[in-house]
Design a protein around this nucleic acid. Structure first.
Lengths: 354, 354
DNA sequence: GGATCATATGTAATCGAATACATCGCCGGC
DNA sequence: GCCGGCGATGTATTCGATTACATATGATCC
């Protein structure tokens, strides 16, 4: 049954039965076979069952490319994400795939590693492969991306943010409000000196907005963020660790460090652990995304629960609806939630004073 | 430039320029356009540049479905994984996607949530969509899956295990040897009473083999695993937590608990934390896969570093080679490595005795 | 009982690129 | 000076399903 391993060298794409074979066996025309598959109601029940039997017997699987060529649709969604290594996008994509599958759409996947030029390139390849509709992460994209999608009439939806201008269909939450709330939480605890660990902000509206949320909350409290207390790095534990090490080395170190995601925050916690700095006693640390990685640390990481799964699900629903001509809400703002755990507490100075 | 949000209701797949348009503009035939794209060496440099200019100008993107129909290949790989929520498969898939992209292949993704029937269904859909070659996880599959792939002549490779019979191309490591080594490690520390937290074993050769490795190591030491010390559950933190809670509640509790993956292990650590049981003083815990989740815990989780990324990379390379008719090793066994961290130590009894 | 219409099915054109085959120069060999 | 051969290009067929249009059959209405 299974082919002997050696034969694989020959890339023989073997015989498959076509609609003609089915038609012949069932004693009908190919048009009827096609109708039996796509508009079964328009076929006589008797004929239908004969065709179905023939399909079964021949193990007929329609040729998607032929179908796509003629009917101008492939039933494929494309997901273009920054990276897959951060569990976050994997989970969103998982939800997206699940929901797409349930509606008969396959999912084509690509990553651009935070490079908008690569994003444009892989999207073009997907258009070429016939992908019907697209999901992108974030609001920042090469203008050429939109003109490509536009000229090929491909629906798309941006995720993880809501396009305030309303130009682009988008599903996400208010990144700025999220970190604003988090900063507010730390201010309420009595913190006055803050550090920020952020992803690079070029081409990344999420991290830009998250930084803006922190600054806005501080400004509202008459405070501000010193440039030297802000550290940037690619999303990885080591970035958080390095950034925290640097912040800890300062004469005047922040009493609270906000990270724009849980990975940075956990990396920062590791740096504290290594340096013998206690969390939250000596320094409070917060993340965003509320991942297992953060939640399972000791102490548990205070974070923002973001609508990771909901975004994926809603994106699939929106695209399916649009392709099928059903009306949908093109702009969807989903809620987030601050999750308090043990990584945040009043600063030491404040506790003494009490 | 961007379409107004409202227009999306109309699924207008707009005009795209075809090879004919390019041919007309460049003053050549469509055959030459096709050759310019696929066998540039066979076209006069002068003509070539004229065609390229026309392509550029018209922003021509070849129609993949037409190409696939005629040339009988789509340049798409399919990855069928159990789940995407476990960061593991996401990382393997990430590597796979990256390597595939570098070679001009797109990646179509599906998950089957540990249901072999769903696996068969989504694979059939992928065949229908024209996917050229497949990557599956594990060695356990519905026989119909192989006969489907075989009758459609689609190359495939199984991953995360090595098919001892040599029937199926596969890339992975020796799951049994991995847990054997881990059990040996715990035996060497002096443990004699073991618990096991495992994923269900039906249709999952990895978890079956990992369990077998533990039993084999124990048998070699004249010990065995009591049924009541083995707990099963779906891969999630809660499964590990629940299992550990149950093991801790026993009169005669194990001094070492092996988990078949890091998620279970971390879940187990959480249960210990809640119950005030110290790791590794009161109980040693081990995982498999060496994820960040385990490595960043306090104490750090002793685990097995598995070739997560290498598997994805190698799978892409193998499939590309086979589709392109180049010879490759169809069976690849990759190394694993035991990573000792602070979650394992001699049992309390042993320590006292010293 | 003939016109009308709905239902079921067949016929044939079509989608866009790849490619087998034909054609046309042009060069070199003898 | 003729012919074989090669390089560059054009012509026309092909891939397999969808679908507009044509046709046949039988029911319905006045």
């Amino acid at each position: 049954m299974a082919k002997p391993a050696g034969s694989a060298i020959e890339p023989t794409i073997a015989e498959r039965s076509s609609a003609r074979d089915v038609a012949r066996l069932a004693g009908v025309s190919t048009a009827t076979v096609s109708r039996a598959l796509n508009l079964p109601a328009s076929v006589d029940p008797d004929t239908l069952s004969r065709v179905k039997a023939a399909i079964e017997k021949l193990r007929y699987v329609p040729h998607g490319a032929a179908r796509a060529l003629r009917s101008r649709k492939s039933d494929m969604f494309g997901a273009v994400v920054p990276s897959f290594d951060y569990a976050l996008y994997a989970r969103t994509t998982s939800a997206l795939q699940r929901e797409a599958d349930a509606r008969g759409y396959a999912l084509v996947l690509a990553a651009h590693h935070y490079d908008l030029a690569i994003e444009l390139r892989v999207t073009q390849q997907m258009v070429q492969h016939g992908v019907d509709a697209f999901v992108f992460v974030g609001l920042d994209h090469d203008p050429a991306l939109f003109s490509l999608l536009d000229s090929y009439g491909r629906p798309y939806v941006l995720t993880w943010g809501v396009d305030a201008s309303g130009i682009h269909p988008s599903i996400g939450f208010d990144n700025r409000a999220a970190t604003y709330a988090m900063t507010r939480h730390l201010l309420d605890l009595g913190h006055r000196h803050f550090g920020l660990i952020s992803a690079p902000t070029t081409g990344n509206d999420r991290s830009r907005e998250r930084g803006a949320g922190v600054r806005a909350a501080l400004a509202a409290a008459g405070l501000s963020l010193v440039d030297d207390d802000v550290r940037y790095g690619p999303i990885a534990l080591e970035s958080g660790t390095r950034a925290m090490r640097e912040l800890l080395a300062k004469r005047d170190r922040p009493t609270a460090v906000l990270a724009t995601n849980d990975v940075f925050a956990v990396g920062a916690m590791l740096a504290c652990r290594d340096a013998g700095v206690r969390v939250p006693d000596d320094v409070s640390i917060t993340g965003v995304d509320d991942t297992d990685l953060g939640a399972t640390q000791t102490p548990g990481l205070t974070s923002i629960r973001t609508p990771i799964v909901e975004i994926g699900r809603a994106a699939a629903l929106q695209l399916a609806a649009r392709l099928e001509g059903r009306p949908v809400n093109l702009l969807q703002e989903l809620p987030f939630e601050l999750v308090r755990r043990a990584s945040t507490a009043p600063p030491a100075s404040r506790r003494r004073r009490r």
